[in-house]
Simulated assay, not measured.
Amino acid sequence: MALPKRMKFGSFLGPFHRVGENPTLAIDRDLELVEWMDTLGYDEVWVGEHHSAGWEIISSPEVFIAAAAMRTKYIKLGTGVVSLPYHHPLMVANRMVQIDHMSHGRALFGVGPGALPGDAYMMGIPHETQRERMDESLTTIMRLFTETEPISVKTDWFELNEGMLQLRPLQQPYMPIAVASVQSPAGVTLAGKHGAAVLTITVPRDPSAGPSDLQGLWAIAEESAAEHGKEVNRDDWRLVLPVHVAESKKEALDDIRMGSARYLKEYSEGTNGRKSVFDGPLDKVVDNMSESGSWFVGTPDDIIDGINRLQEQSGGFGGFLVQTVDWTSREKMLKSYELFARYVMPQFQGTVASTFASNQWATERQETLVAGRVRAIDRAKKVYADRKA
């Protein structure tokens, strides 16, 4: 298993905000976090689309990204993800191309079938059709991105008559594309079909289902790519996991002890009906989820160890995204992202190898170097004394 020379790091921003707080201020904090990540040197952020259940309150990642693009300089901004069955493909393609231009080429295009069952239900979309519709939509969008002649497509849920884009993508031939994949093979199969990247939420929305079969999912992606004459690259595979970092393990656990329990019990289980993953007291939820590896909670060294374990479990990946959960104070959230950037990211991006090597070089030659410095000082003193004599 070979690590990438420079792993990509970022956030998978659902976001998750507890019901009952001011949603305007919650979205403001999300934008503030993206600005902070831009300052800290994170590579990317992926913003979700959800329409029900009250916790994940961004309904249009494109609108959020447009605002974030005006506040940032370097970080890439992705949809994480556009739920393709909810939209006409021409509209999705047009919005993504516009974002690509407005962000000056920083757009990333993440797609999926739609995660929350309530969303599809409200729109009258049969749940069993969502993955097939995702495939039909992305195939059409790829044609719109790459073909210059008008195209016509007719399915049982959308019709495109001589469709073409009036703006071409700024990034050529188009912005990077990633397909969400958690448990079913549909996402990785579609990624392989188009040679796209993969976004994998390492612990599915239903934690009781256990962790994703990472190596199995990647094998399906490679098989699908081979069938369609495409290639998939492990360096473009992003894994997603909730993370909180602090100066000590105890501090990290205590920071999110009740907030994380409310997220799991009130939202994942209480709202969405997932089976209980832990039947103990609320104040022990975070300990259980951390010990099982479902969440990475601890010091920078703990997080480094966790990412290395994921590399072993998956066979290798090229990007790690923090699944952002609003489970502690604003100050502690921002501090967690800072500690991650200062001490975790450099270990996987090659930026501290040379400083370690330089330090080791100097340490090993300490006696010789110090002796030379002493001789130089002694000589300077002697020269001065001789001049005064």
Rank of each mutant, 00 (worst) to 15 (best):
S59G: 12
S354A: 11
K381L: 15
R238T: 00
R379K: 15
I177N: 01
I125P: 03
P15M: 01
L84M: 12
G259C: 05
Q366G: 12
L108P: 01
G163H: 05
V232I: 10
L264N: 03
A362S: 13
Y384A: 15
I303M: 13
A209R: 14
G10A: 02
M289W: 09
V243H: 04
L214V: 14
L167I: 05
I65C: 04
W36A: 06
E132R: 15
F158N: 07
D326A: 09
I201R: 02
Y343W: 14
Q166E: 10
A362L: 14
A180I: 00
G10F: 00
H101Q: 06
S248H: 07
Q130P: 06
A226N: 13
P176W: 00
P23Y: 10
T355V: 11
A67S: 11
I65F: 04
D283T: 13
E32Q: 11
D302Q: 12
G114I: 00
T189G: 07
M91K: 15
L170F: 11
E62V: 03
D378Y: 12
G124Q: 11
K154T: 13
E56Q: 14
A341N: 04
L170E: 03
R238N: 03
G315P: 08
W327I: 10
E44D: 04
L264W: 05
N308H: 13
A221C: 11
T200V: 13
N22R: 11
F356C: 11
A221H: 05
K275L: 15
M7F: 03
G229R: 06
A219E: 06
K250R: 14
A197N: 01
L13F: 06
K8E: 01
K193G: 00
S181I: 03
E247L: 09
P85S: 10
T202K: 02
P346H: 06
E231T: 13
K275P: 11
S103G: 06
Q311S: 08
A246P: 02
Y263D: 01
E49F: 01
Q183G: 05
T271I: 07
D287S: 08
T148E: 14
G14E: 03
S276H: 11
A380N: 15
V111T: 07
E247A: 14
V297F: 04
T299H: 06
R375L: 12
G293L: 09
S52M: 08
D135Q: 09
Y86K: 09
E312P: 07
F296P: 00
H87Q: 08
Q166C: 09
I151D: 05
W295F: 13
E222P: 06
Q323V: 05
E266H: 10
S329D: 09
R106K: 08
M7D: 00
K335S: 12
R71S: 07
R29S: 07
R238L: 01
A115Q: 02
T140G: 04
V286Q: 04
E21N: 10
A221Q: 05
L239D: 01
N94E: 15
M91T: 10
A225L: 07
G372W: 10
A115L: 08
K284D: 05
I151T: 05
S184C: 07
P89S: 04
E56N: 10
H87G: 02
P4E: 05
A67T: 08
T79H: 01
K250H: 10
P117I: 14
V297Q: 03
P117N: 13
R257Y: 11
M142S: 05
